[in-house]
């Protein structure tokens, strides 16, 4: 009997302690989403377009690492750059990354640009997903879970960089395909993604995002004239883990410069804020109108003269 009482008291103590910790937790660490500055240890990759020569080694390494289907034409076939007249290649359901060539007006030699998921710090795909299929890890990788995906493709609409791709050819397990930062195979152990390790020109630098921003600024400062003074991805869509520096204006090499400098979710917040308003105000408002209308009808029933005077008014 005594032991039961003891355990009961213990249970109460433990639950109270739990509640108190829960209440105190927000005081210790600011848990509000809007104030969260991002993970400090967040990783990233700096892409230096001035170093890239378009060898497509990164494409091959990515294909191997992620066991993607063999490409229609081998990765050492450079003629693929010549056949991009109408629209350029983009990451799709068979390739997580592609390199495109641009003939920029500001540069004599062509410029190459690697495209993959930029791993936003506040990803639009994640915030737009209604089944929570996307997660972001402390390392900054944005991951997709095919097991809960319904295939609505809202993430493809939401992504400002148009990265997620859909397996339209699959009838029974179509899923979204996109770069996963090599999280399951490499990043989780602190190793750089396959493309970075494969790059023979050191065009891709892996490291902590904060450190990469410092490196980028240094390179721009030390090599006067070689770079445009801009780091693409520092603020785009609220900041991305993958950052770009280039020697030509970014809009000349296919970058969208109109991408908002704030997280995409900010544009949706106005609507999300009215939801609780409508849910709480509408019932009272419309029930009230109904009661007023009903009361007037009863009043007219009791005193038909009211209706007549009303009728005269509308007729006049």
């Amino acid at each position: 009997m005594k032991s039961i009482r003891f355990s009961r008291r213990r249970l109460v103590t433990i639950s109270l302690a739990g509640v108190m910790t829960g209440l105190l937790a927000p005081l210790q660490r600011n848990a509000r989403g809007s104030d969260f500055p991002g993970y400090t240890e967040s990783k990233g990759v700096l892409v230096d377009l001035t170093r890239c020569v378009g060898c497509r080694t990164c494409e091959a390494a990515c294909n191997l690492e992620n066991q993607l289907p063999a490409p229609e034409r081998p990765f050492n076939d450079m003629s693929i750059f010549n056949e991009q007249s109408d629209h350029l290649r983009r990451p799709d359901d068979k390739a997580f990354t592609v390199v495109n060539r641009y003939d920029s007006g500001s540069s004599v030699s062509p410029v190459y640009r690697k495209i993959q998921c930029n791993h936003c710090q506040e990803p639009a795909c994640l915030t737009s997903c209604f089944v929570n299929a996307y997660t972001i890890t402390a390392e900054g990788a944005v991951l997709y879970n095919h097991q809960v995906c319904v295939g609505c493709r809202t993430c493809m609409i939401a992504c400002p960089f148009s990265v997620p791709a859909f397996c339209y050819s699959s009838a029974f397990s179509p899923q979204i395909m996109k770069c996963n930062f090599c999280y399951p195979t490499r990043l989780v152990q602190g190793r750089p993604p396959a493309c970075v390790e494969a790059c023979p020109r050191d065009a891709l630098t892996f490291g902590e995002r904060a450190e990469l921003l410092r490196i980028a600024r240094q390179r721009i400062k030390r090599n006067k004239g070689r770079y445009i003074n801009y780091i693409y991805g520092e603020n785009e869509a609220g900041g991305t883990s993958w950052l770009y520096i280039a020697g030509v204006p970014f809009n000349e090499v296919g970058f969208d410069e109109d991408i908002p400098k704030q997280p995409i979710i900010n544009y949706v917040k106005d609507f999300l804020a009215i939801v609780p308003m409508v849910l709480t105000i509408w019932p009272g408002l419309f029930a009230g109108i109904h009661l007023l209308v009903k009361r007037r009808a009863t009043a007219i029933d009791n005193d038909p003269k009211l209706a007549e005077s009303d009728h005269d008014k509308t007729a006049a």
Binding site: S128, N132, G151
Partner: peptide, 26 residues
């Protein structure tokens, strides 16, 4: 049009993304 129409009720029973506009629509 849905990729996996047999998962239509996932946002109701299986996995929730309540901050998404489409969650409200569904």
């Amino acid at each position: 049009d849905l990729g996996m129409p047999w998962r239509l009720t996932y946002p109701m029973f299986v996995s929730f993304g309540p901050a998404a506009v489409l969650f409200l629509v569904a």
